[in-house]
Amino acid sequence: MSSRKGQRDAARVVREQLARERRRRRTIWVSAAAVVVLVIAGVVGWVVWSNQRSDSFTTPPGANADGTGIVTGGGPVTVDVYEDFLCPACKQFEQTSGSTLEQLVAENKATVVYHPVAYLNRFSTTQYSTRSSAASGCAAADGKYHEYAKALFAQQPPEGSAGLTDDQLIDIGTSVGLDRGSFGGCVKDETYRTWTEHVTDDASRSNVTGTPTVKVNGQQVENPTPDALTAAVAAAGK
């Protein structure tokens, strides 16, 4: 009797051990599968990202040597302006301080380099930041970057919308005197899309985390009011 009970107990212990072993193996396999899924997901992200980036870029005439911005003027002090055509604060900056920058250029006190970055693509359904920046490259090719930029800010679409269409971008160009044929073709062909990517990448690399960012001889001006800009340029020019 007792020996049979002993056998039953032994059999049960073995069964339980086998069951435990099965559970252990299953857990290991399931965990391994989950780890593989997570690693694959990460690699997929990296591959998608690498494929999105272009290796080379076309720089519009009028850009600086690095191809990271459009140069206006030739004064001794360099003012870098990082702006996104969808950014409301950039529109505000353009409207309050844009003429100050023009004046500093006219007085030959400063060289202004405009970097039209595409930081806010998520805030339009059509990558408006990239499209408008690429279009501004087309305007720069005809020497009308700042005129075009001002007109773009004046007609800035709201964040979260579809933005302006390519046709509207072209119409704005003709309104500031750009040729519908060559400028329009440039916008439609997205000739400077790779340049926009380069400008944006360079700005990110230089720790420009927001727009507008204004730097005077490399030093960021925290609150770029007309007075602050004039003072910063005067101080840097000494």
Binding site: V30, A41, G45, W49
Partner: peptide
Amino acid sequence: TVIGAALPFVELALGVLLLLGLA
């Protein structure tokens, strides 16, 4: 940039695994 590109996909994978209740 590499972390930034991989992270969203890893987050989505974590979400799907939790949704399924796998591992």
